[in-house]
Design a protein around this nucleic acid. Sequence first.
DNA 1: CTGTTAGCGCCTTCAG
DNA 2: CTGAAGGCGCTAACAG
Lengths: 342, 342
Amino acid sequence: MNIRELARRSGVSTATVSRALNDRAEVSEETRARIRRLAVELGYAPNEPARTLVRRRSDTIGLVWDSGQEAAGLHNPFLLGLLSAVRTALSEADYHLMLLTTAGEDEPDAAYVQAVRRHNLEGVIALTTPPDDRCLRALAASTVPCAGIDTAFTGPRTVRVSSDNAAGAEAAVQHLYDLGHRRIATVTGPLHLPPAAERLAGYRRACVRLGLAVPDSYVVGGDFFLASGEAAGRRLLALDEPPTAIFAAGDQMAIGAMHAAADAGLSVPRDLAVVGFDDVDAAGLVRPALTTVAQDQRALGAAAVAALRDMLDAGPSSPVPAAEPRIVPTRLVVRGSSGPRR
Amino acid sequence: MNIRELARRSGVSTATVSRALNDRAEVSEETRARIRRLAVELGYAPNEPARTLVRRRSDTIGLVWDSGQEAAGLHNPFLLGLLSAVRTALSEADYHLMLLTTAGEDEPDAAYVQAVRRHNLEGVIALTTPPDDRCLRALAASTVPCAGIDTAFTGPRTVRVSSDNAAGAEAAVQHLYDLGHRRIATVTGPLHLPPAAERLAGYRRACVRLGLAVPDSYVVGGDFFLASGEAAGRRLLALDEPPTAIFAAGDQMAIGAMHAAADAGLSVPRDLAVVGFDDVDAAGLVRPALTTVAQDQRALGAAAVAALRDMLDAGPSSPVPAAEPRIVPTRLVVRGSSGPRR
DNA sequence: CTGTTAGCGCCTTCAG
DNA sequence: CTGAAGGCGCTAACAG
């Protein structure tokens, strides 16, 4: 079943069939309807590679995500939600989605760029990719439109999408302040990652605004994983003037801090309030359930798609439409781990 | 940069370039090397849609996963690992990957089948899809080669890949038995889902083999979510002769059971041992950490790809290569939630 | 409003 | 071992 066969059976030329099926104006309503009906009846589906070849566009965008450390769990819990969100938004916009991969270390830097050219991809969405991916840097540096969620890249046709990490952190601190806490410490992520740095900035901003002292000892570095949160918690609770509340830049670290409190014979939230960031599955499963700053994966995915479409609609020769990152609001989810200062 | 340009610069015909780049035998080593070098130098990449059009194959396979309930969390934690595993295995086999979507309720049943035809996809891998997806049933019923991980479909060219759920459950019960437990209850998933049914079967088989009594009250139905596990735990602990150990068919339910124990003033594992299934992130984060049966996502992904390749290599007219499902072993991860009978 | 024609970039016969 | 020619299925000019 191809367009020629369909044309033969409809008694028209292939050009007319093409026009009818592509909603071109210059076809009579009657023939269009007839052709459409027949197409459905015969189960005709246009051959996309052929269309791509002649139209020089594929209606397809590429998707990249962190291939290496994903097992480690850094942004892991999001990825799936983001993936789904992106997929949904893209298919609503009638784009197809292709997964891109790099084969590994001996891959040429141009791997992604070449993949884009090979498949005629119109743009790429990158999800929580590491800042040191050579192939991705090369892609961002090219003229391929790229939208990145929680990525650090920049380039001529690149838009960054991200949660409002600073505001989220600020809201967390404000929440603790409202509960009466005045000695609020924080556990950070690796500060070379933008989200980690931004969350720390939000924490500091809130403390300044609220007039809270932030001794150096109240800012402890972590790596987003459980053990680092537990270690940080131990350290903080051993201080001469321990905090009454901890804001951790990630849920795993927050849970680690809760473990540290339990080990110190303290009760959460009575003796120590804890707030995390991300709202991963586990946040709702631990006891007490973790108060946390939730990211809106749906909105992040939709924003990335929207950013990409803006660039595509603007055309290849247009100036960079929006160098400024697109920021998506977060939402504080109050659960059992944060309570009034005792 | 297309093949014609590359041919011009190499001083040969396009035919020769094509042969050189596609590793055909009838090209002299010398010209091949020269062309290859030039191709890299000029950053030439063949146009895949054009290749697909003429070769009538795309080297691309489609990927489908549960679009609806994924937010619910049923198999959620796996999906990402499976996705990565499949992606890796497929790219190692030089296949490209396309994500497939159904637009929703008003989609024709043939949606996936048509997508496969449109893009010339050579096969489809389905991940943890619901048994009632009309589009997927239509796909499985077609001649498109399909490999499914934790899927319920069957069709002429279909292979099912799955963890050895029964053996995993059996190992969990054996582990509890070895710790001295003799009153072992279970919390099941929805039994219309194959993994849930198989885990229950494994539990029963182990109990029979070990000579353990299984009163009806020791088998409590759940839905894989936290609350159902907690409710089941409450029910079990309220029995006249409560179990000393619980095997839950999912980690969330296992954690729920731990909560129920805590609420009843019991200590895990001292008063009650708990074993889960899946080894989700949260299993390592709760306290005590959850003993659980881990699925091997990498192996599942690789098995699905291998199954698909077997069908593809066998050719379209060959008989169904393997109607029997491919089973991947599980691994018991012993953590703190299971201890000797007190 | 519709048909005819000419490719899109590539691979694959068939000749040399 | 290499080149010339034809066509994969479709769309986009250009005529009518």
